[in-house]
Write a protein that binds this DNA or RNA. Structure first.
Length: 413
DNA sequence: TGTCCACAGGAAATACGGGGGT
DNA sequence: ACCCCCGTATTTCCTGTGGACA
């Protein structure tokens, strides 16, 4: 009976202290298109990305005089809203065109994960309903033919938004050649290409013959400043969180920290979400101090996520090094580390790499910031890397556990 | 000054694996 | 179904190196 009451009270207090009311608004992936656009409507009406939208408008304006805009390239770091802004803009553009009886359609080719040229064309064909999804067995030429066939009858404006263009693996040239040279010559529609990239120089290693053909306009997306981020965050807070539970200044702090370090809206929302999550778990309000902890947590998650997505060999190397440095205080040398690594490999039934390869992996870990490895000469006692770990014990212990789990071992001490 | 340790790290060879062409 | 080709991972082989020590 006692426990019954206890549980009831627990649930009661959890309900009262609920902070996250609608989790979906903390993660764009979970919103459908309509909702996304509605959120954007609110954001853009607050002058966020105003300059960029202005640029877009002047680029597409010729459409309404019957002209033909040149192609467009969007630059900006990740999380500056290239994709979201452009999609929103295209949606609006389409609505306006419909009102003015101008034929227009657009397609969004999402390359957030790298794809070969073939897959991209296949995607395009699928959107056009020109072909089904092929794994292989159809030549690029044939695929292009099908796309052209489908486009032949169309006479209006046709906008293809190629998101993250530099993710076209292998043969970006032939992909562009098709879009820029071949397509406009074979079909009658008015084609406008929109590319987005976070690298300013993605055009540099393109076949110069295509490059000279490519008349292009550029729009730059600046990182969000603190004011923009405040707008974005406050909207999310209104939609997703219980505002009573958020202390004064938290919003400003998150915005300030984010704009200072990256200006990435997605990361800012992530920080907000993490803070709320911690607060909810602990049954407190979201405080400034909690934001700092969330920041730490995200940092920790970063290391964990990175090692989880790394190759097994790299994980094994890191484990060996962590285990070794935990045992001794002095720095570890390559030879010792390699021996430890071999031992660990035999334990987990993994083929050990050569010392040469091992050495490269150590350097890689150094680059990622897991460890410090500096070459140091001990005179006649040789020249070797001194390996130390600078991570807080908490993180390195966590990493150790994670790696063991990756190898299906229980952390036994 | 020369020697020599214990590797670093470059270059080339080789293994591997998956996708494309036929 | 088959073969080929190419990019990547790893190995093999090798030369280079800073400084303690004699």
């Amino acid at each position: 009976m006692q426990t019954n009451l206890k549980i009831e009270r627990q649930i009661q207090s959890l309900l009262q202290n609920t902070i996250i009311l609608d989790r979906r608004f903390l993660d764009d992936e979970q919103l459908d298109r309509g909702e996304q656009f509605r959120v954007l409507d609110e954001i853009f009406s607050l002058d966020v990305r105003d300059a960029e939208i202005q640029d877009l408008s002047s680029h597409f304006a010729p459409m309404f005089r019957g002209g033909h805009p040149v192609h467009l390239s969007l630059y900006g770091k990740t999380g500056t809203g290239k994709t979201v802004t452009m999609l929103y803009y295209l949606n609006m553009l389409q609505a306006i065109c419909r009102k003015k009886k101008i034929d227009m359609m657009y397609i969004h080719l999402d390359l957030s994960t790298p794809k070969p040229c073939f897959r991209v064309l296949n995607d395009l064909a699928c959107y056009l309903d020109a072909s089904k999804r092929y794994k292989k067995g159809i030549s690029l030429d044939e695929l292009m033919g099908k796309i052209e066939e489908k486009m032949e009858s169309y006479r209006g404006y046709f906008i293809i938004f190629v998101d993250e263009i530099d993710h076209v693996r292998r043969d970006l040239d032939s992909f562009l050649k098709f879009l820029v040279k071949r397509l406009p010559q074979t079909v009658a529609l008015k084609l406008v290409l929109v590319f987005s990239s976070n690298r300013l120089n993605w055009l540099e290693n393109i076949d110069p013959r295509i490059k000279s053909f490519l008349k292009i306009n550029e729009v730059f997306f600046k990182p969000y400043n603190a004011v923009d981020l405040q707008q974005i965050l406050s909207l999310r807070i209104r939609k997703a969180l219980n505002q009573q539970m958020i202390e004064e200044g938290v919003l400003e702090k998150i915005a300030a920290v984010s704009s200072r370090t990256h200006g990435d809206a997605r990361k800012a929302v992530e920080l907000l979400s993490k803070s709320a999550l911690i607060a909810e778990k602990e049954g407190t309000k979201v405080t400034m101090e909690l934001v700092d902890r969330a920041l730490d947590d995200i940092e920790k998650d970063k290391y964990v996520a990175m090692i989880k997505s790394s190759p097994k060999q790299l994980q094994a190397v890191l484990y060996a090094i962590i285990a070794l440095t935990a045992r001794v205080t002095k720095p570890v040398y390559t030879g010792d580390a390699y021996a430890g690594y071999q031992l660990f490999c035999s334990k987990i039934n993994l083929r050990a790499l050569t010392q040469r390869a091992f050495s490269d992996l150590v350097s890689e870990l150094d680059m990622y910031g897991f460890i410090q490895a500096r070459v140091f000469s001990h005179g006649r006692y040789g020249r070797t890397k001194e390996i130390t770990i600078n991570l807080p014990k908490e993180i390195s212990d966590r990493l150790r556990q994670v790696i063991l789990m990756e190898f299906d071992l229980n952390p036994i001490h």
